[in-house]
């Protein structure tokens, strides 16, 4: 009995790994998704630059807002594309035919989506630092970006699995995602702003707690309902 259980959990982890590996291997070759996300992210920063006049004075307080708006917009591009690859060629059926729990597919996709998001963020941060002559490489900020991205992809992966199965899928994802993801954006912007402005830690802590709570709750919900999103 116990051995059987161990075997099954090994099976589960291997399937999660297979899905994530497959996405990363394909993306490293084509770079379709990452390049689209990156170019888009840089364009968003440029648009902000001219619409907000990011001069030295105002910059400090708006930097975190600009960063998160950029991540959120670029993120939908990646989420959409990553799920469309499964849907367009019927590969989703191929995943569903495998003898593993559906949530393994969810976690695999969530891990690859999170990785794409972190790669984009890891490139945007130094570029932003360079453009505006500030240092964004602070351990606190990186922690916030990690927590925020986990929440974003946890919900985003679930909702993108729904949106690609609708007729209006090109426009559907941001409309579904943004009202749900608002707490992550608020908390991440506040916490990042706190670190950038060197606020005392007890003013940042509530936002970190909120991010952690959100991450845990929505990962759990997505784990429970993903079945209903992919099954017929």
């Amino acid at each position: 009995m116990k051995e059987n259980k161990e075997k099954r959990s090994g099976n589960y982890l291997r399937a999660i790994g297979a899905v994530a590996w497959k996405d990363l291997a394909a993306e490293l070759r084509s770079k379709e998704l990452l390049s689209a996300m990156l170019v888009f992210a840089l364009l968003v920063i440029f648009i902000f630059n001219f619409s907000l006049e990011l001069d030295a004075k105002t910059r400090n307080s708006v930097t975190s807002g600009v960063l998160w708006a950029t991540f959120a917009f670029a993120g939908t591009l990646g989420l959409n594309r990553s799920m469309a690859i499964e849907k367009d060629r019927g590969c989703l059926d191929g995943l569903l035919l495998a003898p593993v729990d559906r949530s393994a597919i969810y976690f695999g996709k969530a891990i690859s989506n999170l990785t794409f998001m972190l790669i984009v963020e890891a490139i945007v941060l130094p570029v932003y630092s360079l453009l505006y002559n500030t240092n964004l490489f602070q351990p606190g900020l990186i922690l916030v970006i990690l927590l925020g991205s986990v929440g974003y992809t946890a919900v985003g992966t679930l909702l993108s699995a729904m949106s690609v199965q609708t007729r209006t899928r090109d426009v559907m994802l941001p409309i579904l995602l943004f009202p749900i993801i608002l707490p992550v954006i608020i908390a991440a912007v506040r916490a990042s702003g706190g670190y950038l402005q060197n606020l005392p830690f007890d003013q940042i802590l509530p936002w970190l707690n909120l991010l952690i709570v959100y991450d845990v709750i929505f990962t759990a919900i997505a784990f429970m309902v993903f079945d209903y999103v992919v099954e017929e």
Binding site: A15, A18, K22, A25, A26, R29, S30, I85, R89
Partner: peptide, 19 residues
Amino acid sequence: LYVDLTAAENLKFYGGMYN
């Protein structure tokens, strides 16, 4: 099949899914 993977990689992926 995933078009950005090779034939062997596609099979390797599905082999992982079936453990």
